[in-house]
């Protein structure tokens, strides 16, 4: 981290004027978002408000129709898949439906990308994977296949898989929404630990409690726009905007 200290002022992810349209409907309307190193940004809002679109635009899984994205100050050439791949090597992602590869063991799931993208040699990747698995209490599951794991375990493996690439930031798209209630806690625990360790995260979530305690900033989105953002406590306890209040009243 010391190497990055010099450019701490430059946001790690800086998106400006992101717009994304699907057919006739606008999913994202000129949204700007900047994430500093070590920041944990929670994105909340009703479904269909553009949260997932926003997070997917940040690593090019959806290519924005307009706007700019800078990673560590360097603009991303959004028409180039190669440029997006470079972004994805630095910014990991975890999805709602854990989407592990069912034909590979847990260990293979984790080491596939580090080995194939040339980040690490196989043995080194395996060692990293085992260490990370141990950190999420899944050391004994290295050789299991995804079908043998519970939802919460799958999601922890998915997080480990993203971490194995040693990303500078993590994007998490509703990581607990598809989980049974009793499994949500084990995943949130892992995320809490990561946030304490200074991992930069943008997390789309419905877990307001988690956002309140773990997020340094909360963004409320509605109808393709950022309606309000600020410190977690401020937005969640005393929202300025009526729409935010309505949303929070509904889900709390």
């Amino acid at each position: 981290m010391t190497a990055c200290a010099s450019n701490r002022a430059v946001p790690l992810i800086a998106a400006e004027g992101l717009t994304k349209c699907f057919a006739k409907h606008t999913a994202l309307r000129a949204v700007s978002l900047s994430v500093a190193r070590g920041e944990v940004v929670a994105v909340i809002g009703p479904s269909g408000s553009g949260k997932s679109t926003l997070i997917r635009c940040l690593n090019g899984l959806l290519v924005p129709d307009a706007g700019t994205i800078r990673i560590d100050g360097a603009p991303v050439d959004m028409r180039q898949q190669r440029a997006w791949r470079a972004v994805r090597l630095r910014v990991g992602m975890v999805f709602q439906d854990c989407s592990l590869f069912p034909h590979l063991s847990v260990l293979q799931n984790i080491t596939l990308a580090p080995v194939r993208t040339g980040r690490m040699r196989r043995e080194q990747a395996a060692e990293t994977a085992r260490n990370l698995l141990a950190r999420v209490q899944l050391a004994d599951k290295a050789d299991a296949y995804p079908a043998q794991l519970s939802g919460g375990q799958l999601q922890r493996v998915a997080i480990v898989r993203a971490l194995a690439m040693a990303p500078e930031a993590l994007l998490l798209d509703e990581p607990t929404s598809a989980l049974d209630p009793e499994m949500i806690a084990e995943v949130l625990d892992v995320l809490r630990t990561l946030s304490r360790e200074g991992m930069t995260m943008v997390i789309v979530t419905h877990e307001i409690g988690f956002a309140r305690e773990a997020a340094s900033r909360v963004i409320f989105m509605d109808q393709a726009e950022i309606v309000e953002q600020g410190a977690a406590d401020a937005v969640l306890t005393a929202p300025r905007e009526a729409r935010t209040r309505t949303f929070l009243d509904k889900i709390l």
Binding site: R88, F95, D97, S99, L100, F101, L112, A113, M165
Partner: peptide, 12 residues
């Protein structure tokens, strides 16, 4: 989502 999550890992 198999393709998407593989893409998100930076695979070609």
């Amino acid at each position: 989502h198999q393709r998407t999550s593989a893409a998100a890992l930076g695979l070609k």
